[in-house]
Amino acid sequence: MDMKQITSPLQHDVIKGLTVGDMVSISGRIVTGRDQIHKYLTSGGEPPIDLSGLVIYHCGPVVIKEKGQWKITAAGPTTSMREEPYQAQIISKLRPGAIMGKGGMGEKTKKAMSECGCVYLHAAGGAAQYLAECIIKVEGVHLEEFGQPEAMWVLTIKDLPALVTMDSHGNSLHDTILNDSSKRLEELFSQPFSVKK
């Protein structure tokens, strides 16, 4: 399958052109944000930079300072579902172009993505070194008081691979997999276990 090249911040027509199942290669400026950032942004906190069109990456990286420079030593996605209570509000208020993480998100986020034009990008969980190689620069850090994994890191990335699993047209691969595996589970439940001699 061909990879679609996209650049963050994402243009509205690019977002609209993405559909579930598209493999993308992302370049440009992105920000990280996880539990503390989401709580902060939905309880009156002002975003330290303009988030419109940007990719918000659910990621708590490992970072060290070497010769006065920040260096990311590992940076894979974290479970996005924890941000479900906050994400829709952030999408409608701050208009990011994409949310990137792992595991997908729920109904509220899906609805906000349709209404505001936003997509969910699924990155390979645990592949922290492969993904860290795609980060070519740490531009800066905000809200560092939340702790290193929870701070907002502003990064420049190049060719980071991800899969569109929720689009701005109301589709979700996670819904499909959940429904299919639910049916399969019912079938498996009807085959009782007996010890094979």
Partner: peptide, 15 residues
């Protein structure tokens, strides 16, 4: 990613 982490002696996963 597994090959990279082993080669660079860096974390397999950031968590």
């Amino acid at each position: 990613s597994i090959v990279l982490s082993s080669k660079k002696s860096l974390p397999i996963c950031q968590d």
